[in-house]
Each structure stands twice: as C-alpha cells, then as structure tokens.
Simulated assay, not measured.
Amino acid sequence: MTSPVGLHRVLEPSGVLPQAALRLDNRPEIGADEVRIRVERLNLDAASYRQLSEKHGGDGAAVRTEVLDIIAKRGKMHNPVTGSGGMLIGTVDEVGPCSPLRLKPGDRVATLVSLTLTPLSVDDDLAGWDGLGEQVPCSGHAILFARSIAAVLPADLPPGLSLAVLDVCGAPALTARVVGDLVARRQDRSAGVTVAVIGGAGKSGSLALAAARRAGAARTVGVVPVAAERDRLLAAGLADEVALADARDPVALAAAVEGALGRAADVTVVCVDVPGCEHGAVLATADGGTVIFFSMATSFAAAALGAEGLAADVTMLVGNGFVPGHAELALSLLREVPGVRSLFEARLAAD
C-alpha cells in the first residue's frame, strides 16, 4: 500500500519522511497514486552546486562523478553536506489511477518539490553534463507522490528558462505576501515599507526584488558582493538602490543597507548561497521587521541565537519553497518585468 507522502519509498531509516531518509526506493514501478516522470534535466540548488564545485576545485568531471555517486547511493539527489537538492523537468511517463495531481502522460512538467525527497534514477551517467553549471541534462526517471507538486511547463518559454525560474518560485511569492501584508497594515502611509534583498542579482534575489516592488514596497535595495553584479542589477532596474557588501560581514552589511535606505530595512530577504549571513541580515533589519531566509546555506541556530544576542525584535521566516500560486507568480514576473528576464537569460548563457 502506498503512502501519499511517500513513506513506502523509504528504505532507511524506517519511520522518517522521504526528505530525511538516507535511502529511497527509486524503482520505476508506480503505485496507484504515484506518477513516473521521464527526466530531461535536473537543476541543482545553488548552495549544493557551490559546495560541490568548491570541494573539487572547479573540476567538472569530479563534480559529475560525485553527483552520480550521491544518486546511486541514496536513490535521490540529496547533498549530504548542504542537505539540499534542487528540482527537475521531464515528461510524464505513467500516471497511477488514483493520483490526485491532474497530470497525464505526455505532459512536460517541472517538479516543485525538492530532489531531496524525490526518488530518482539516471541511466546515462550524466554524459551530457560537464559539471560546470547548475543545470544537468540527463536521462532517467523520477517518482512523484500524491502529496507532491508539479507544474506543466508553459509553451511560450524555453524549458531551461522555466526550470531556472520555477526552481526558486517560492521566494517571490513569500516576499510578496510579507511585503503586501505590511503595506496593508501601515497606518502612516508616509512611512513606506523598505525592503533589502541580500543577493539581489541572483535568481531568487531578482525575483524577490520584483515581487517586493509589485507588492507595494516604497524603496528597495539589492545587496551584492562584487562590482560586476552591481552593474548587472543596476542595468536591470529592479532595485531603487544597489549596495556593495560582503553578506558575511555583519557590520558592513548593515551599514550598506542603512546607507542605501537611510534606515534599517522593514523586510530583509536572504537569497545568497554561502553560509555565515545570518547575523548581518538580522542587524540590517529594523525592530519589528521581518527577515526571510531563502538560502539552504542558512544556519537557523545561528540566526535564532544571533538575534537573541543582538536583542533584535525581528520575526524570522524560513522560506519553505511553497506558497499557493507561487509558480504562476514567478512566471508572470519573468514575462512582465524585462529586468528579471534579462538577468535569468544572462545567467543561463553563462552556465
């Protein structure tokens, strides 16, 4: 008997959900409420890819070998160091008669659940991937459960572009919700909502900036670590201000945000893929404000204890990747905000 959350696919240890499992059963035969996807491309999450690339000194062949090894050993793509995975696109191969996902064979889809909980097998040794970018062309299969989420790929966008956007679609949706709620609560309309996005030139960061502006933010600042990213973000026109700072330096980060906005941010969104940014994000946020962590490199213990040590009265949210309507919102921003699309296309071209 199958479980809607995939418990029947857990091989070890027993009693945990698929995301926490050490190994999953990735056999292709499906249960009555499962769906099998013929995989075309993986998108490794940024923190996972950075860790693997740095570990192997940028040696793409070594990165490819380790990704293959992880999938073979675990039955899923679950980086044991970062604890993160990514997502995939492919074509629906078979649908169980009791599946509630409203998919049919032949649909081209993006999975909106993490590879860390998705049974996965590859059969081409990742021969089409050089290990030098986050997107991984491949052949294989993946299994979706009754409680999984998938989106049919839009016909008007290249699959690789859709994959890159849908990989981070939770970030703009939660940013829009938080900013929109704060704007609605503000009684003094002269005190507009200010938003800082750490890592504003990246995928999730650029979408978060666009979402904040659409939700009514009065002023936004994108924080980036190097001049090249500053120039790209300025050209995209997604932020009112762009500041240079190392997000791992708490004092410098807070100073950069306050210098750009004239005060600490009401909402700070962390979208960087390196560890050690928690204290700076807290310090850059005004009392009564909100910090949204959208990085799998975040130490949530460091964030909580750091806020306590700073006597910071801030609300801290974990971006869990799912907000109702998140895929549609992200794709609409890509279509309607030229700066978002230009940054995504440039990133894909570089990869």
Score class of each variant (00 low, 15 high):
residue 64 R to T: 02
residue 167 D to Q: 14
residue 166 L to Q: 05
residue 1 M to C: 10
residue 255 A to L: 11
residue 261 L to T: 03
residue 316 M to Q: 15
residue 210 A to Q: 05
residue 203 K to S: 15
residue 247 A to V: 14
residue 10 V to F: 05
residue 41 R to E: 11
residue 181 D to C: 09
residue 67 V to N: 01
residue 134 E to C: 12
residue 300 F to M: 14
residue 97 P to W: 06
residue 167 D to Y: 07
residue 104 K to L: 10
residue 86 G to T: 03
residue 199 G to P: 07
residue 176 A to M: 06
residue 319 G to Q: 12
residue 33 D to R: 08
residue 199 G to W: 02
residue 122 V to M: 06
residue 259 G to N: 09
residue 300 F to V: 09
residue 57 G to D: 06
residue 340 V to L: 05
residue 301 A to H: 12
residue 195 V to K: 04
residue 51 Q to G: 04
residue 211 A to L: 07
residue 54 E to G: 10
residue 263 R to I: 00
residue 83 G to I: 01
residue 83 G to W: 01
residue 319 G to F: 00
residue 70 I to S: 06
residue 133 G to P: 03
residue 177 R to Y: 09
residue 92 V to F: 07
residue 140 G to V: 01
residue 118 T to W: 06
residue 240 D to R: 05
residue 141 H to R: 06
residue 110 A to M: 09
residue 47 A to Q: 04
residue 89 I to E: 11
residue 321 G to A: 10
residue 278 E to Y: 00
residue 169 C to N: 07
residue 95 V to N: 10
residue 36 R to C: 01
residue 200 G to N: 07
residue 3 S to F: 08
residue 349 A to Y: 00
residue 198 I to G: 04
residue 294 F to G: 15
residue 218 A to I: 00
residue 20 A to N: 12
residue 14 S to T: 12
residue 41 R to C: 11
residue 167 D to H: 12
residue 330 A to P: 06
residue 74 R to Q: 15
residue 193 V to D: 00
residue 234 L to Q: 14
residue 111 T to R: 08
residue 24 L to E: 00
residue 114 S to G: 15
residue 278 E to K: 03
residue 58 G to L: 00
residue 138 C to Q: 03
residue 34 E to Q: 14
residue 226 V to M: 10
residue 237 G to I: 02
residue 347 R to A: 12
residue 186 R to C: 11
residue 19 Q to A: 14
residue 71 I to Q: 06
residue 303 A to L: 09
residue 288 G to Y: 02
residue 128 G to Q: 12
residue 14 S to V: 11
residue 23 R to C: 06
residue 11 L to G: 06
residue 109 V to R: 06
residue 56 H to G: 05
residue 92 V to K: 07
